[in-house]
Design a protein around this nucleic acid. Structure first.
Length: 479
RNA sequence: CGGGCUGUAGCGCAGUUUGGGAGCGUGCUGGCUUUGGGUGCCAGAGGUCGCGGGUUCGAAUCCCGCCAGCCCGACCA
């Protein structure tokens, strides 16, 4: 069928137009009245809830507890950690008036909560027996962004921020890496995104952090998306907020803190990792509807098809499958097929008189071609298996895509070519100015120093000074 | 914040050059018809022309300011 305004611009024609149209047409979001703000609509919010549930479960399984800290932060708190203020100053929203008058001290709408949480930790921690302190909060934060994009960079976004305090560096680093691993497993097992876990170079570090780690995913246009970050703060915040404890030795020591976050940006990652020209493709774990049943009836038969469709949905639901019957009577089946494909539903079942007569239903997979008859009796077990296979297939497909678009490069020419369509694995000298040159010429940046990258010496791909990291870095253009 | 483009019915757009009637497609409502890949016909509702100011007898149209969106840069989860 010729492209019309009911579909989306094909990815190959204009990837960002595809994305921008899709988030609205799939009814994931709408625009808020304030620049860069986003209304997350029920269909989009359900996906977030499912992602949230998976993250929250893992956070709790690893011994963390949830709490909630206030939205408004005294400006003076931010000033206490020099790099932190400097890093966030340009993107802060500040409340100067309240209660009908100007405030004596302006209040910051939190861009992140290190400072308030640090202040409270100082109050709650006094002995090594109070450590580690493993906190997490689910919250909204505000960062005034120059170029907003739905999910990827919005002025206000939702996230989870873990904040922990530890007796020493070893324990804090262990925590930092544990959170990173948690994010990698969330990305792979829930979102079916094959991320690369690694450390950021100095230039890409979080303001105030000693070390920053990241999981990076590859989108279908070859660009990288930072999908979760974990920071080791050293004693920077402990010193700024006086988080001290008495050690077994009786000495007063500063705690070592960490923080880590995963955000609604992840949904942008899901869209751009799996979506195609027909629209969204949702991993079953995150799909609000895993199976949609389209009843097909002609005239009087419409009424006869509905009860068996509902009955089938009920049997699927009892199996734990999120099944939905599309009961809209004013729309043709063809319209519904396209509609649910746009919205990324993994499996569609058609149920009409012909199927009922044979005791079957016609199954179509979101990325498959053709339709397969499935007996109604075996449907719950069959669909459970199909959904599992679909989830696995998405991860495999995304991994293959990522690998096909990742090149180990041996020259600057190869590097420049590689980052046009994907990632380049290359040695680097570690000089910030050299990173800048690379960015200026190719718009690629070091995404991370992969944790499991094999040792590799050699010379910087750009300036030929000796490699600073002992292994190759992942370079790519990023969101 | 710099450069370029845009804002007219829910959505997509024409009309703006050369000032005077607010239109088209789709969607929406009602009815009939249809339903296995975006049904067809008939009737109908729906717009402060992004917001504010100015010029004019008269502004969607000309001028100034602001807001929002898209693309390209600097910032970022």
């Amino acid at each position: 069928m010729a492209r019309d305004e009911r579909g989306v611009t094909p990815q190959s024609e204009d990837f960002s137009a595809w994305y921008n149209e899709l988030v609205f047409k799939a009814e994931l979001v709408d625009r808020g009245p304030v620049r860069g703000t986003m209304v997350i609509r029920p269909y989009g919010y359900r996906i977030w809830e499912l992602l949230q549930a998976g993250i929250d479960r893992r956070i709790k399984e690893t011994g963390h507890v949830n709490a909630y800290f206030p939205l408004l932060i005294p400006e003076s708190y931010l000033r206490r950690e020099a790099e932190h203020v400097e890093g966030f100053a340009p993107e802060l929203a500040v409340v100067t008036h309240a209660g009908g008058k100007e405030l004596e001290e302006p209040l910051i709408v939190r861009p992140t909560s290190e400072t308030v949480i640090g202040e409270m930790m100082a109050k709650w921690i006094s002995s090594h027996r109070d450590l580690p302190m493993l906190l997490n909060q689910w919250a909204n934060v505000v960062r005034w962004e120059m170029r907003p994009r739905m999910f990827l960079r919005t002025t206000e976004f939702l996230w989870q921020e873990g904040h922990t305090a530890h007796v020493d560096e070893d324990d804090a680093i262990r925590e930092t890496l544990l959170a990173l691993d948690l994010y990698a497993s969330v990305a792979r097992e829930i979102a079916a995104m094959p991320v690369v876990a690694g450390e950021k170079t100095a230039g890409e570090r979080f303001p105030g952090a000693r070390r920053t780690f990241t999981v990076e995913g590859m989108m279908r246009d070859g660009r990288a998306l930072q999908s979760g970050t974990s920071h080791y703060m050293g004693t920077n915040f402990a010193k700024a907020f006086n988080i001290q404890y008495t050690a077994e030795s009786g000495e007063l020591e500063y705690a070592h803190t960490t923080s880590w976050g995963m955000t609604t940006r992840m949904l942008g990652g899901v869209i751009m990792t799996h979506g195609d020209d027909k629209g969204l493709v949702l991993p079953p774990v995150l799909a609000p509807y895993q199976v949609v049943i389209v009843p097909i009836g002609r005239g009087d038969q419409a009424g006869q098809v509905l009860p068996p469709a509902q009955e089938l949905a009920g049997r699927l639901q009892r199996k734990g499958i999120r099944a939905h019957v599309d009961t809209r009577t004013h729309l043709s089946p063809g319209f519904k097929f396209n509609d649910w494909e746009l919205r990324g539903v993994p499996v569609r079942l058609e149920l009409g008189p012909r199927d009922l007569a044979g005791g079957t239903t016609l199954m179509s997979l979101r990325l498959g071609q053709g339709k397969t008859p499935v007996s109604l009796d075996s449907a719950p077990a069959r669909l459970e298996a199909e959904l599992g296979a679909f989830q696995d297939m998405l991860l495999r497909r995304a991994t293959d895509f990522r690998d096909e678009h990742t090149n180990t490069v041996g020259s600057w020419g190869e590097f420049a070519e590689a980052v046009k369509t994907g990632w380049a694995l290359a040695p680097h000298c570690g000089q910030p100015s050299c990173e800048d040159d690379i960015k200026a010429e190719t718009s690629a940046t070091p995404r991370c120093i992969p944790l499991d990258g094999p040792p590799a010496e050699g010379r910087c791909i750009r300036c030929e000074l000796p490699s600073a990291y002992g292994k190759r870095l992942v370079f790519g253009r990023a969101y």
